[in-house]
Amino acid sequence: MALLEIKDLMTVFDTAQGRIKAVDSVSLSVDSGETLGIVGESGCGKTMLALSIMRLVPGIGKIIQGEILFSGKNLLALSEDEMREKRGSEISMIFQEPMTSLNPVFRIGEQIAEAIRLHKKISSNDAMTLAITKLAQVGIPHPEKRVRDYPHQLSGGMRQRVMIAMAMSCDPQLLLADEPTTALDVTIQAQILDLISDLKNKNKMSVILITHDLGVIAQTAQRIAVMYAGKIVETAPADKIFTNPVHPYTRGLIDSIPQAGITGANDMPEFLKTIPGSVPSLYDLSPGCRFYERCSFADQHCVLVEPPLEKISDNHFTACWKSAQLAK
């Protein structure tokens, strides 16, 4: 059964220049124990989607349409107090930059204990003991000493581990990880990705992993959703996305990574394939497909009518008028 089901979600920002649809009629589901990867370029709305699930859309942004069903309950219908109880206990989030998401003037132990005590009625001593256990779980050496450290005393990888410990402190059912390794070095990235999947397996939780890096997602996600300009353009099991991508954007994205070394192939092309142009401005989107300007398959129909997300085979959905032709 799906743990999280998003139906027709729309998050908008009303600015002086007009309305921006950061998340535009997105429907998604995450099964329990599953890792869903959301991939897309900057500005495609992947972070706004995560923040919408947490109901933490900043500033003037608001959710104007849709449902977010978490274990069958619509999160959008909850009061702010009820939502606060869910955040951090049933649904947690890790952010990209661990330095800016930790408070620099509190010891890390206190910060983890605070998260625990918000959701559990236990003494501060017990909370601190629990914080130490959590730090040990995320692989921090000498956790009983480290709880007394301030964030600046830790390296980037260690800080991200602290963030994960904090997110895991109440054993959530769903973890949202927004670019958790982007600010880290490759060797540390591998350690953190490992840690997330270990914790996922141990605690049987679901993970939504948001990243722009197809390599990261290939390694960790079971299912992948590709986002472009606020919309999901393709979802499929991970191996299908890589072996048999259908949407021209997904194809372009995969072709544009220098991927020798990943595939182990020696025949490197002199030049990479690229997607021409850049992401359209969200202010004046065409009524048709958002990708048509950069798409080599586009025709008049694509310019005028927006393609719906349609099933093309088992578990494989894509939003493209040419999908029947491209799937062959």
């Binding site: 692989g139 390296s155 990888g157 260690m158 490759v186 060797t187 540390i188 990235q189 591998a190 350690q191 990705l193 490992d194 890096d213 197809l214 390599g215 990261v216 290939a218 390694q219 996600a221 099991p237 991970a238 191996d239 996305i241 890589f242 990574i257 991927q259 070394g261 990943i262 595939t263």
Partner: peptide, 24 residues
């Protein structure tokens, strides 16, 4: 070798072949 093995593998579902080297 550590750097190369830390590269995320593109082929999904394939066993991770990198060695678990700890530390920074």
């Amino acid at each position: 070798r550590l750097l190369l093995s830390a590269l995320p593998s593109r082929i999904a579902g394939k066993e991770k072949k990198y060695t678990h080297i700890k530390g920074e």
